[in-house]
Simulated scan of single mutants.
Amino acid sequence: MSDHAITAIGFDADDTLWQNEHFYRLTEQRFTALLEAHGDEEVISSRLLAAETRNLALYGFGIKGFTLSMIETAIEVTEGRVDASVIREILAAGRELLTHPVETLPHARDAIERLSGSHRIILITKGDLFDQERKLAQSGLGDLFDAVEIVSDKTADTYRRIFARHADGPERALMVGNSLKSDIAPAIGAGAWGVYVPHPLTWSFEHVEPPVGNPRFRQIEDLGALPDLVRALARDGLHSAATDPSP
C-alpha cells in the first residue's frame, strides 16, 4: 500500500448525508411571517443572521441556539414589545425542528456501504449533541460508521485530532462535506483531502471561496460519484498529492 493511500473517509452529516438547512429555511419563513408588521422579510432575516453569528460563541451551532436567536431578534425588532404569543410560536417552531423526521439524501447509504469495506468510515458533525444523536439514530446509517465524532466546531486541529485518533493521520484521510468553511478548508489545512459536495441551501455563514488551486481539493455533484473518485485517486497513486498539503 502506498504511503499516501487514503485509509479513512470522514463524512459530514447535515446537508451531506441528510436534509437540514431546508427545514431551517422553512422555520425562518414562519418566523419572519410572525413579525411581518415590524419589517420586511429580508430585514428581519438579516437581523436574525446577525444574532445567530454573534451568539455562536455562546450557544454553538444547532437548533437550540437558532431558537434563542429568533427570540432575541423578535425582542429587538419589536423594541421589547413582542407579544407572548409570538414567543410561544417561536418555541413551538424550535421544538418542531428538534423532532422533524430525518430525510437522507440520495446516494448517502450506497456511497458509505461501497467504501466501508476498504476504508474506515467516520462521521464528523457539529452541533447539539442530543439533536445530532437523534438524527443519526433515525437516519438508519449509524451502524455503517467505525467512529462518530460530534464536535462544537470544525477546525484544522479538530481534523488532526480525529484522524489521528481513529485513522492513520490526516495525510491518509479524506473529508466529505457540503460546507467549504467547515468541512473542506480546515480538513485540507490539517493535511487531509477535501471533497466538496455542494448543497443548494448551504447556510450563508458557511460560504467561503473554494480552494481550487489546492491539489487535495476535489468537487463532485453528489455522493453517487464518491466511490469512483476514491478509486481513481487510488488507481492514480495519488500523484496529485502535494508534499506540502497546506492550502
Rank of each mutant, 00 (worst) to 15 (best):
A137V: 04
I162Q: 12
M175W: 12
R54D: 15
S2H: 09
Q19I: 02
L48R: 08
R216D: 07
L26M: 09
A8T: 11
G169I: 00
H100D: 00
G127A: 10
D14Y: 02
S116D: 07
L226H: 04
W193L: 01
D128M: 10
H119Y: 02
E221H: 09
L141R: 02
A57E: 15
T16C: 13
R114P: 01
A147F: 14
L105S: 04
V43K: 04
G177E: 07
Q29P: 00
R235N: 09
V77D: 09
E21H: 11
E52G: 05
I9T: 08
P170I: 03
G10T: 10
E221Y: 01
G213R: 08
A232H: 14
T16Q: 10
D128K: 06
F205P: 00
W193V: 08
I75E: 02
T155R: 12
A147Q: 07
S246Q: 06
V77L: 04
S240D: 14
P211M: 03
T67L: 04
A225D: 13
S240W: 08
Y59F: 15
A232N: 13
A242P: 15
M1K: 09
W193T: 03
I75K: 06
S2K: 06
P200G: 01
R54K: 13
F205M: 12
S45K: 15
L97A: 06
T32W: 07
F130T: 12
L226Y: 03
M1D: 14
D222I: 00
F31D: 12
L105D: 03
T7V: 12
P106I: 07
L91I: 14
H239I: 12
E171Q: 12
D12R: 00
G94W: 04
K64C: 13
E72C: 11
G191R: 07
T78F: 06
N55D: 14
K64L: 12
G94P: 07
G213L: 13
E113I: 13
D83C: 05
V197R: 06
T202I: 12
V102L: 08
L229G: 03
E21N: 09
H107R: 02
D236E: 15
D157Q: 07
V43D: 12
K181L: 05
L49M: 11
T125A: 06
L180E: 01
